[in-house]
Design a protein around this nucleic acid. Structure first.
Lengths: 251, 251
DNA sequence: GTCTATATCATGATAGAC
DNA sequence: GTCTATCATGATATAGAC
């Protein structure tokens, strides 16, 4: 019911399809109207006729995908809270709520697993147009999920949670944007009986969750950094002045 | 001694400086020769005269920075192994060895903290030219650090270590590429007496290390994913067909 | 409504005067 | 070494034929 876009010609749909593939492959700046139209078997001017501009095309493309994605995320979070209780959700569950709709998005698309890379592209595309779009369209759900994480991590100050969320999201963006996600996923699940979506998401969450849940103190890391810094300083000085005897060494 | 580049005119140095700033700010594709030359106060043809092409300019820029950076990383790793013993290095120390030279790189550059963003740009730039460059110039040090991590994590199979390293590096790239690294770092260190490099690196390592050290099993995450998936399926079916009883779903 | 042809602009690169 | 002038190419966007 409710076909995705009703008032569109076949070429318009093909343009969206081609644009999505090229966006995933090359990013916003690097994809040209020529590539889009030739890959869609349409005329060069087709994009401007059907959408008005390149930006408008991408905007429609992202809106069609991400707005629905975020809507599903919100509904799923509400459903989880109603089912299990607001304060009973742990970090893994909230992360699942964020990731499961992304997987479902990839399911009904042509690309399949490639649609997850669409998310990675969007998160990491350097074009300001894409950044602004993300900023605007993620604001509404950010606060909602922030609260969910805050309840799952009651001992974490809100400042700290904000920082960790920022880090986690950027780290996730880096992971999703990778060229060879498929190989990574395959290698990730080596030795497992079946490579299904559940396992893949579980591994991804097992990878991201520790960034949020790891305890506070970093005295161990501070000591490590200090020791290495001392060695680096020593090496830098002895590199210029070779007449030195200490075992600190210069290579 | 041995000045970095001896046979260069002043304008060539200014071109490199301007190119670096623009590369950090906008990335490879988005920076134009016109921007570079005007910002350097040079003529439009200056880049092609001094370097031969835009690619050659970036290549020289990156080589000047990253090759030295990686060299310092290798030397520092060797120094650490000699000082503390090959099998005594833990994950935090090896990560420190990777990060400390990056910080020193930023120290003597004009940009200061901006030079860390140079690394982020390089890691996340979508241009194939940059990707190829990274691939070629990081191969030599990858094996060396892989072995170091393998000794620090003796219970981790090599397959698994490879996957986790790939993930960690991509996550790090996502973090470093962020537009607002400065704010993040500031927020990251809120409540601390002094915001120095040591503390910043310690926090970064405390953030990255858990991805490598977190124990194996993900049954908890698998359960979370399964529960959320069930709710998602249920929501999807009831949304379209309110009169349905089976939980198997049709989409 | 759709596509052909074209306009306008910016890019990287080159040739040649000085 | 540096500059001006120019090239060929590819970018987005528009006018107008059918």
């Amino acid at each position: 019911m409710t076909a995705p876009y009703v008032n569109s010609s076949a070429t318009k749909a093909r343009l969206l399809e081609a644009a999505e593939a090229l966006f995933i492959e090359h990013g916003y700046e690097a994809m040209s109207l020529r590539q889009i139209t030739t890959q869609a078997g349409a005329n060069l001017a087709a994009v401007n006729y059907h959408f008005g501009s390149k930006e408008a095309l991408i905007h429609e493309l992202l809106t069609k995908r991400l707005d629905r994605l975020n809507q599903e995320r919100l509904e799923l979070l509400t459903a989880c809270e109603q089912r299990y209780g607001e304060d009973a959700l742990d970090v893994s569950v909230v992360l699942s709520v964020l990731f499961v709709p992304g997987l479902r998005l990839g399911r009904d698309s042509a690309g399949g697993a490639a649609s997850i890379r669409l998310l990675g592209r969007v998160y990491s595309d350097p074009s300001p147009f894409i950044r602004d779009y993300l900023h605007d369209h993620y604001k509404p759900i950010y606060g909602r999920f922030f609260d969910a994480f805050a309840r799952a991590l009651p001992n974490l100050p809100r400042n700290e949670l904000g920082v960790r969320l920022q880090f986690s999201l950027k780290a996730l963006a880096g992971v999703l944007a990778s060229e060879n996600m498929d190989e990574l996923v395959a290698a990730m699940c080596v030795g497992e009986a079946v490579i299904d979506d559940t396992l893949m998401l579980a591994r991804l969450i097992a990878f991201i969750a520790p960034m949020l849940t790891t305890p506070f103190g970093q005295t161990e890391q501070t000591n490590a950094v200090k020791r290495v810094m001392e060695l680096a300083e020593a090496a830098a000085t002895t590199a210029d002045i070779p007449t030195r005897r200490e075992p600190s060494a210069r290579r």
